[in-house]
Structure formats: structure tokens, C-alpha cells
Design a protein around this nucleic acid. Structure first.
Length: 289
DNA sequence: CACTTGACCTGTCCGC
DNA sequence: TGCGGACAGGTCAAGT
């Protein structure tokens, strides 16, 4: 699913598309999509106006005028797609290809706005979730209490970054990067891409990594994720942004899903191994154990 | 305790 | 073409 750059791209799109709109009706498979609902979904959604769209780690927050927020995790295959029916017949409109296709069988929540436009939460694998929580209590849910710092914040330094790993000295570096309580927002794609950039083998123990290597990894993670945000994220399989469009970072990937191709740095064949239970892509020459 | 593995689901791709 | 198995962007609970 969407990692930080993909969720950030969705957030930026949604911010432009839905802030100011008022919800007219909501359809959902409530039991699955709103686990442990802390509020009556109808009562705090219908007639609510959207006042802000935010992101924390890989979670999206849609703040409502009812002082409640929709808290959304897309997990592996979740999508939030906006369809503006008013413009559906305009030639060349980016949503043209989607109109008539949504909702589909992966749609789990449909939000209709008073102007006739819709926001769909689609999720093929059903791992994702939506929660409706009072805005000022969002910070208290388990996920938010556990999650680590945002790596792209301007005041997040290389020293802060290295310090985050001190509690995971015995783990492999890849497992630690993927651990959301260490650093927020990094997933499988950007873990592989940044470890390649820093020339660190993903199976190395955190305790064996030098400070100079942490510095390099810090720089690479920020570089790679900022580049990806710039490119609208990565579409590996089915990620799309709020307008239903794919991201192009995969065109710039150096190792992820490039096994059998040449390392862009040294020409050695990229291989795929398994680390931290995840498919992992490395250059065996640049990244030594 | 710290770390690793399986489970959650559905769809797709690859080898036979 | 059909079928079985492995695998997929994430996160927990359960296991070692």
C-alpha cells in the first residue's frame, strides 16, 4: 500500500478537492470499515462539512465540522478516489476513465457530497480501515501513540534519526526502518531504495551500522521520499491518487522490483532476497553484509 | 524481553 | 487454458 509519499499525494489531492464540501449521505460496510466505531457514523458524518485534510505517518485525517475526524489507513490496497460527477462528460477530464467504474466491488465506503460529487474508499484486500473519532482524541488511538517521528519534517536532524534506532540495536536495519514506532511512513519500497542509496545491506544488525552510515541513510530516505512525492508516488500495482491517477516514482526506482536488471551504480545484477519477512531488492556488490 | 513469523484478504502471475 | 502455489505497498497478535 501506499507509503508516506503515496499518502501525502492523496492528502494533497483531497485537500484541494473536498475541503469545504458538505456530506449528504454515506454508504458503507460499517462493521468492517468502521471497526470499534466510537460514534454514530450517520450522526457525525451526514451534514458535516470537511474543514481540513491531514496526514500522520501513513494515516489520513479528514477533519469535519462536527469536531470528529475520519481516520483512514489504506494498508496494502486502499484507495481514496474522488469523482466529480458534474464534470463527467467534459472531454479529457482526468476522471473520465473512472466514471461509470465506481463504485465497484472493492468499494467499501461511498461518501456523497451535496454538490453531487463522491469520495470512494476502495480496498481490494480489506486490510484498510476508517475510524470516526473526535478530532481532539485522534492522538490517543494506539497507532498514533506508538508511531515515531516524521522523517521529512524540517527540524528532524540526522542525529535525531540515528537516535531513533537505539531501541532496536538487535534487529536488522530493514526491520527497524519498517517499524513505524522507529520512523514514521517508510515502507518496503523506500526501505529498499534508501538502503541501496546508502550502500547498506538490509540484513545488517542495527548495532553494526556506523554513524556515517546512519547519516547517509537519513539523507537517502529524505531524498527518495521527497522525489517520490514530486512524482506523485509509486504505482507498483494498484495505487492511485485522489483523482484516480497513478504515480511515476517506479520509473525512477533503482532496485525495487528491478531484480535481474543492472545496478545503476556498478552494473552488477540486482537480486531479490528475503529480509524481515519481506521481498527485498539489493545490489550484492554495493550492499555487503 | 526483543525479535521473528503468521494471519488478515483478494487478485495476479508464474510454472507445470 | 487450467490449476496450485507464491507473492503483493502494512500492521498486529502470537510464537520463539
Amino acid at each position: 500500500m501506499p507509503e508516506l509519499p503515496e499518502v501525502e499525494t492523496v492528502k494533497r489531492g483531497l485537500f484541494k478537492l473536498v475541503v469545504g464540501k458538505t456530506i449528504k449521505s454515506v454508504l458503507s460496510d460499517t462493521a468492517r470499515s468502521f471497526p470499534n466505531a466510537t460514534a454514530d457514523v450517520e450522526q457525525f458524518l451526514v451534514n458535516a462539512k470537511i474543514i481540513d485534510v491531514r496526514r500522520r505517518a501513513k494515516v489520513l485525517l479528514i477533519d469535519l465540522s462536527t469536531k470528529y475526524s475520519l481516520v483512514i489507513h489504506l494498508k496494502m490496497t486502499g484507495q481514496l478516489v474522488f469523482v466529480d460527477k458534474v464534470e463527467r462528460f467534459a472531454a479529457g477530464h482526468p476522471n473520465d476513465s473512472l466514471v461509470g467504474q465506481l463504485p465497484d466491488k472493492s468499494t467499501r465506503v461511498s461518501i456523497e457530497f451535496t454538490d453531487g460529487s463522491h469520495l470512494y474508499f476502495n480496498d481490494q484486500r480489506k486490510f484498510g480501515w476508517v475510524r470516526l473519532i473526535p478530532t481532539d482524541e485522534v492522538q490517543n488511538i494506539d497507532f498514533m501513540k506508538r508511531v515515531g517521528p516524521e522523517p521529512l519534517e524540517a527540524d528532524f536532524t540526522a542525529n535525531d534519526f540515528a537516535k531513533c534506532f537505539e531501541k532496536r540495536l538487535g534487529a536488522t536495519i530493514k526491520a527497524a526502518i519498517l517499524d513505524q514506532s522507529v520512523i514514521a511512513g517508510v515502507g518496503n519500497i523506500y526501505a529498499d531504495e534508501s538502503l541501496w542509496g546508502a550502500k547498506i545491506h538490509p540484513a545488517r544488525k542495527v548495532g553494526s551500522i556506523f554513524k556515517s552510515e546512519f547519516n547517509k541513510l537519513y539523507t537517502e530516505i529524505r531524498l527518495v521520499m521527497n522525489l517520490s512525492i514530486d512524482k506523485g508516488g509509486s504505482t507498483n500495482r494498484n495505487y492511485v491518487n485522489a483523482e484516480g491517477k497513478k504515480g511515476s516514482y517506479m520509473d525512477f526506482a533503482r532496485v525495487f522490483r528491478r531484480e535481474g536488471l543492472e545496478c545503476p551504480r556498478c552494473g552488477t545484477e540486482i537480486i531479490k532476497i528475503r529480509v524481515a519477512g519481506r521481498g527485498t531488492h539489493i545490489c550484492p556488490n554495493c550492499q555487503k553484509c
